[in-house]
């Protein structure tokens, strides 16, 4: 049943094989997205997937929706133009941790602040895969990368806390080890009228794994399973017990002034202001 939904949405004249490595989590996220979209009942023709640059940003190429594979870091900016240009569309941004939070960091916080009705899925594997393993803004302090041979000395971003603090309507974190919950979060994000962020914990075995000696893809999946803990469960744990844990679940779910709806009010106001003057 699940498989048929995903197959139904693959591009008819597909450009396969895909570029992803064995053990990569991107495929799990993409299939969760497709299932989530199916369950929202949104018309396929009215969905636009937008991505930037990186391994994860190739995801829209493989599925049968209108899609824009843009420039590095700018997916949210392209998406903002699409959504404002035609607010009827369901606009979903697929982006990596480097794409969204380093080169695209400014667009990310401003999209949250603007609270425009776009759903953003962050394929968060803590590393730049396509370029060969440089450290990303979500790489944990102390981890190793092609550009951190002595270990990462910078502090990492927490995507969810950042999104909550800057104004997103809906924020959740899922993991590829729990695709059912992930699908639910993405669905909730799409249905939220406002800016939604779904941060997804996933492994990058051939590159992150290589630099950090974290074992096979299966080992990395097991490690994610051990590290992730639901927000609810975490409430009963002490700070010591929570050390090294990654919280999953819904961080915030609030609906408030959405940008395109607010802009419609601007249009009404502007049209009223020219009632005495003939419009162009």
């Amino acid at each position: 049943m699940m498989e048929s939904v995903v197959h139904h949405h693959l591009r008819p004249k597909k450009k396969f094989p895909h570029i992803w490595c064995p053990g990569c989590g991107h495929g799990i996220i993409l299939s969760a997205l497709v299932r989530a979209l199916e369950k929202t009942g949104r018309e396929r023709d009215e969905v636009v997937l937008v991505s930037g640059i990186g391994c994860s940003s190739r995801a829209p190429t493989y599925v049968d929706f209108s899609s824009l594979h843009g420039t590095h870091g700018r997916a949210l900016a392209f998406a903002t133009g699409i959504k404002l240009g035609n607010p009827r569309l369901t606009v979903i941004v697929l982006t990596g941790d480097g794409d969204a939070l380093a080169i695209g960091g400014n667009h990310f916080i401003h999209a949250c602040r603007r609270n425009i009705d776009i759903t953003t899925v962050v394929f968060n594997n803590n590393i730049y895969g396509m370029t060969g393993g440089q450290y990303s803004p979500t790489m944990p302090t102390g981890a190793f990368a092609a550009t951190a041979p002595y270990g990462m000395i910078e502090q990492d971003f927490d995507v969810c806390n950042l999104s909550v603090a800057t104004g997103a309507s809906f924020v959740a974190r899922g993991a590829v080890t729990n695709p059912v919950a992930l699908e639910r979060y993405i669905r909730q994000g799409i249905l939220t009228k406002g800016f939604s962020v779904i941060d997804v914990v996933e492994p990058c075995p051939p590159i992150y794994g290589f630099y950090n000696k974290t074992g096979t893809a299966l080992d990395m999946m097991r490690s994610i399973k051990e590290r992730t803990i639901s927000i609810k469960k975490a409430e009963s744990l002490s700070p010591e017990e929570l050390k090294g844990k990654v919280l999953t679940g819904v961080f915030i779910d609030r609906e408030y002034r959405e940008y395109t709806e607010e802009y419609n009010k601007v249009i009404e106001e502007a049209k009223r202001s020219i009632q005495d003057e003939e419009p162009l």
């Binding site: 824009l68 420039t71 900016a77």
Partner: peptide, 9 residues
């Protein structure tokens, strides 16, 4: 980027 996105609609 937004101009391009809007034009695509």
């Amino acid at each position: 980027a937004a101009v391009i996105g809007a034009s695509m609609t």
